[in-house]
Design a protein around this nucleic acid. Structure first.
Lengths: 196, 196
DNA sequence: ATAAACCGCTAACATTTGTTAGCGTAAATA
DNA sequence: TATTTACGCTAACAAATGTTAGCGGTTTAT
């Protein structure tokens, strides 16, 4: 009998969820089987069900924990008394750092949420839509204040968010530049592209 | 007996491939079953095998037909006697137009290639890697000629390519701006972000 | 020490999956 | 018109999937 090893302050469920993130990222949610996951946890597939309700529950956990982190940070930044373009830069940097440090989770949340089931699916889509609208509102504020070029704000949001997800390629890359250099390059191009 | 309807110059296989593109895009390759595909074609699942060898063959066809179009266009643009930044702009515009007009195929090629099998998988990855290197080389040329900011070229490539894939969100969006406006906005931000 | 809770195991299940075999009819060719 | 080819159908398959039931040992709490 091979018990799941836990570290301090992590439940066995936490171990499973984070192994799931790795697996879902590399194979995709649908292609990753519970038997795969069990192997990577070091246990039989059936044993996983002592800790989780279902495979989809793993996806819920991942998607919503990521979404919540981003929403919380947005709340924080929105209320700071700084120019819009600086808010955008801060949000951008937060996204980049999250994508670098919590790659698996963030990636899964970004690419695999389609496989959520209702009501979680609609819920997630709503949060996502609202999040983007709030970003667009900041950009529109920046346009009004002549900090940002007169562009279509939703398009700018879509470029920002997707450009960030390109960090996936950076992770895969053999000869990586440092995370800090990556961040500066991205900010240069993207904030530079928005600024008048 | 319900024969697959073909239009002029399209084989029954072509019909299947393009329905597959739609399905793979909306559900993902793994989650889309041959029975789903059969239904969308208007036929029984087994009947598909009179026209195709396997499910993965459908993915090959999609991925490589897209990849070939992009490679061919790159050949063409690379050899034009124009400044690097203009090459980048042309390539960018081509990507955008392709993503707008052949959404399903391009999207599938971009997101589902992971599910290819060797030797196709390695092959595709190689082509992709080489394509990106060629883009990076153009950017580096632009940097040397002081047309483009002194940034890390591979990072710039990754931003460009992923930003384009954001057009997915534009497709989903209810209140779309026109394709032409989308293109101009993207060029403004991205080319603007690269240019000194 | 004894009871209770936890947790991993084996075995099994019902579905869903991609795919093949073989039959019969419609279309294409001669 | 006669014959061959193309193609859709039903039936069936083996494999893989998520998940449950129930047993037995181990850890934790009393």
């Amino acid at each position: 009998m091979a018990r799941i090893k836990t570290e301090k302050n992590t439940s066995r469920k936490d171990v499973i969820v984070s192994k799931a993130a790795i697996l879902f990222r590399e194979k995709g949610f649908k292609a990753a089987s519970m038997r795969d996951l069990a192997e990577s946890v070091g246990v039989e597939a059936a044993s996983l069900y002592n800790h989780i309700k279902s495979k989809t529950e793993l996806l819920h956990e991942l998607c919503f924990s990521v979404a919540n982190r981003f929403l919380q940070k947005l709340d924080e930044i929105e209320s700071e008394p700084i120019p819009a373009i600086q808010k955008i830069e801060k949000i951008l940097r937060f996204h980049i750092v999250e994508m670098v440090n919590n790659y698996e989770e963030v990636y899964v949340s970004d690419r695999e949420w389609k496989h959520l089931n209702d009501p979680y699916l609609s819920n997630f889509q709503n949060q996502r839509r609202i999040y983007r609208k709030r970003l667009a509102a900041i950009i529109e504020m920046g346009i009004k204040n002549k900090e940002i070029k007169a562009i279509d704000a939703p398009t700018a949001v879509l470029i920002l968010l997707h450009a960030i997800s390109g960090i996936e390629s950076w992770h895969r890359s053999k000869q990586k530049i440092t995370a800090a250099a990556l961040e500066e390059n991205m900010v240069t191009i993207l904030v530079g592209g928005l600024t008048i």
